[in-house]
């Protein structure tokens, strides 16, 4: 027996060695796996299906079953009239090369990218060929994707009107459209209202603001402006935009929006005053590197902050 060649060790020593051995291996596993998992979190620019929980909660609650994506694809309204087949669904299940946590549903209204090696190997795309497979959310009135979710990662209460108890597609909240006013040709003075007309919440989520064109003195600007309260982030505007790279595009709300915090209150707005009354009173004094120093130091000693 090969065991006999090994030096004898006491059972006590064996126990401690075993504990160290197993503990060490487990620690190695946790470190390697945990390191990978941390990297595997989605890009913060990922758009999630309607009524998705906040990203952190969504990531641990989504079971990656694809029932939302199937509900999105398999419906009579999604049949291509020419071929009679189902069209590509809005909701895609993330693949390992999508920069989104593998297996989770997401969508991209416009997805234009060059073919990579993976596309070549798997689907025969020529390297460098432009692949377009973005699909916006068409904001179905019956919102089929949300009730399909078995785990509650898509939270149906977020799109249920509390008064009527019915699903309300206007309560969807996938993201927020943002206009790049430098690239938007309507802001140049060229007439374009493509996004305005494409918007499912016409004249609500995107409004045209009329402005005088002082350069010509006799023309008008018809500038699209997004209503941050009602825009759902469906992306139909992004698809409709005529510029080479869309000048209006959808970002997740957490990315697109700032937060004024509790220091600032709209004194003229009853709702906002209520917000301040409801808040849990915390220390409102600013504490940061800068506040630790006195303003005189800046003046007297020339300290930089």
């Amino acid at each position: 027996m090969s065991n006999e060649k090994k030096p004898e060790i006491s059972s006590r020593r064996r126990f401690f060695t075993d504990v160290a051995h197993h503990g060490g291996l487990a620690a190695m596993g946790v470190l390697l796996w945990g390191g990978f998992a941390t990297k595997a979190k989605s890009s913060p620019l990922t758009l999630r299906p309607p009524a998705a929980l906040p990203e952190e909660d969504f990531l641990n609650t989504c079971i990656k079953c694809g029932l939302c994506s199937e509900a999105c694809r398999v419906r009579p309204q999604n049949i291509d009239k020419e071929s009679g087949k189902f069209k590509e669904p809005t909701l895609k299940m993330a693949k390992a090369n999508d920069n989104v946590t593998t297996g989770t549903p997401y969508f991209k209204p416009v997805d234009r990218r060059e073919a990579t090696l993976v596309d070549t190997l798997l689907y025969g795309h020529i390297r460098g060929e432009v692949i377009e497979n973005g699909v916006p959310c068409y904001m179905c009135e019956d919102i089929p994707c949300v009730p399909a979710c078995p785990t509650g990662a898509l939270d149906i209460t977020k799109v249920t009107n509390s008064k009527t108890g019915e699903l309300d597609f206007k309560m969807m909240d996938m993201g927020l459209a943002v206009v790049d006013t430098n690239s938007c040709i309507a802001y140049w003075g060229i007439q374009c209202d493509a996004c305005y007309r494409a918007c499912p919440l016409l004249d609500d989520a995107i409004k045209l603001v009329y402005d005088r064109n002082s350069r010509t003195g006799k023309h008008a600007f018809l500038k699209p402006e997004v209503n941050m309260d009602t825009c759902t982030g469906c992306g139909l505007c992004e698809v409709a935009c005529v510029t080479e790279k869309p000048a209006i595009y959808v970002l997740p709300r957490e990315v697109a929006l700032g937060k004024p915090g509790d220091h600032y209150v709209k004194g003229w707005d009853k709702k906002d005053q209520q917000r301040v009354k409801d808040r849990v009173q915390t220390d409102v004094t600013t504490h940061n590197k800068r506040s630790e120093k006195s303003p005189e130091d800046y003046l007297n000693k020339g300290l930089e902050f």
Partner: peptide, 22 residues
């Protein structure tokens, strides 16, 4: 069996379903 335990620990630490993502 250790992988099960490690998967649960990693899930708890990262807030991701550790095995499901790979």
């Amino acid at each position: 069996y250790y992988m099960i335990i490690i998967a649960l620990i990693v899930s708890a630490i990262t807030g991701l379903t550790a095995f499901e993502i790979i």
